[in-house]
Nucleic acid binder design. Structure first.
Lengths: 186, 186
DNA sequence: AGACCATACATCGATACCGAGGTATCACGG
DNA sequence: CCGTGATACCTCGGTATCGATGTATGGTCT
């Protein structure tokens, strides 16, 4: 997820580590902060894999700043990930958020719609957090207000996301067919 | 999070590893599956910490089953975690789900309300995923349908959760004051 | 002049987790 | 009687992440 976020931000424009850090803090920081000890090794890994290059600027700042540029391989890697995300990127809400944040880079409405469809399918599957054998247990079966509330709000949020997904997929697939944009039918 | 889930399930009744595995698969499996290579070492860690004991049953099953029982220390550890969760348990939706699943074990409406309040405060903070310097950028500022949709559905789901939280906190605090249950004022 | 903070980068040990593989037993169908 | 799948447990190597700590410089406040 960190890898995806780094590639996604750098796709727009080169950044140095500290700027990247602040972008990442904005994206996922309030939910799960990224520490320096995670970020800098991650950058090194991406550099070792040839997905980005560091250009040292003997600039005015305190420490020598390394401006990070995506390579062609890096751009390709991002687009490949966006086009064919792993199952975890679809199912885990935190990862899905990251994926969605950069899905616009995938400059192909049909491919974008295909990704949204995967999320749509995932959210459409009957699921609970609690089971009686194989049968999912509904909110109504619980006296416990916490489990009940969890299931009820999960249901509501799933419905909200599904309706957005349906509208957006329809609009994207219409765009893909006609070559022009279409208003969501809502 | 895994630790919390294991303690939470075992608080209800002793289970052997395989049953625990299936409970965990129900709770978080569709979002993020737990592998054997994660579960069994986790059990060993909890045993080494004295939070649970394994009792070997020379039962009829294929492999000798180890029934897992919480110790008093394990029960205390669970209740402590529920009473004073780490910031990550509040902010990360996946962890929060786990926490909420076992919050009923905390047999004190005031303490339960205090935990819900922390989530309420967290969700009330103005937050975006994208920033212009320090200023959070709203959904309306994006032409990108994905970022726009992400922010709009996030707003809707946050509101849904907040209204549930407010109602439930009110009910719990009323219970704590009067000593008896109260209907949510809705 | 000194305190303090933001900027900017880096290392390191500990830990949690994953994935792949391994070892058994039992039940059931072909 | 053999394969397959479910039950049940375990190990090990590799990797990602965390938290603490370190090293600088420049700007601002007092």
């Amino acid at each position: 997820m960190l890898k995806l976020a780094i590639l996604g931000f750098l796709y727009d424009r080169p950044l140095h580590g500290y700027e990247l850090r602040r972008h990442l803090a904005g994206l996922t920081g309030h939910i799960r902060p990224i520490s320096d000890g995670t970020l800098y090794p991650a950058i090194k890994r991406l550099e070792a894999d040839g997905l980005l290059v560091r250009e040292t600027e003997p600039g005015s700042a305190a420490a020598p700043r390394h401006t990070l540029h995506l390579t062609d391989a890096g751009r390709t890697a991002l687009l490949d990930t966006l086009r064919e995300p792993e199952p975890l990127d679809i199912s885990d809400g935190n990862r899905w958020t990251t994926l969605l944040s950069f899905l616009r880079h995938l400059d192909d409405p049909a491919a974008q719609a295909a990704v949204l469809r995967r999320r749509l399918v995932f959210l459409s599957e009957p699921a609970s957090f609690y089971y009686d054998g194989d049968r999912p247990r509904g909110a109504e079966e619980f006296a416990d207000p916490f489990r009940r509330g969890l299931l009820l709000t999960a249901r509501a949020t799933t419905e909200a996301e599904l309706s957005w997904l349906r509208a957006t997929v329809a609009a994207l697939e219409s765009t893909a067919r006609t070559g022009g944009p279409a208003e969501p039918t809502d």
